[in-house]
């Protein structure tokens, strides 16, 4: 998604190395995706559903 639009940035975070972030974002399982610190996506999702969830951050 970051490749498709310059407004979008994407980070992969190694959860084990950042316990402070894990606490901050209440990561209890992986993968967990956090969009704009607001929308949370648990687990892996098919592309269409993932994109729709990410865009909820702007709603």
């Amino acid at each position: 998604m970051a490749l498709e639009n310059t407004h979008i940035t994407a980070s992969a975070v190694a959860a084990i190395e950042y316990p402070d972030l894990v606490r901050e974002y209440r990561v209890t399982g992986v993968p967990k995706t956090v969009v704009n610190e607001r929308v949370e996506i648990l687990g892996a999702e098919p592309e269409a559903s993932f994109v729709a969830h990410v865009l909820e951050a702007l709603a």
């Binding site: 998604m1 407004h7 940035t9 994407a10 975070v13 967990k32």
Partner: peptide
């Protein structure tokens, strides 16, 4: 997906914990 993403005009930051 590309059409939906192209319409984004505000910052979106995606963090994936793994």
């Amino acid at each position: 997906s590309r059409v939906l993403i192209a319409a984004v005009d505000q910052p979106i930051d995606i963090q994936v914990f793994a």
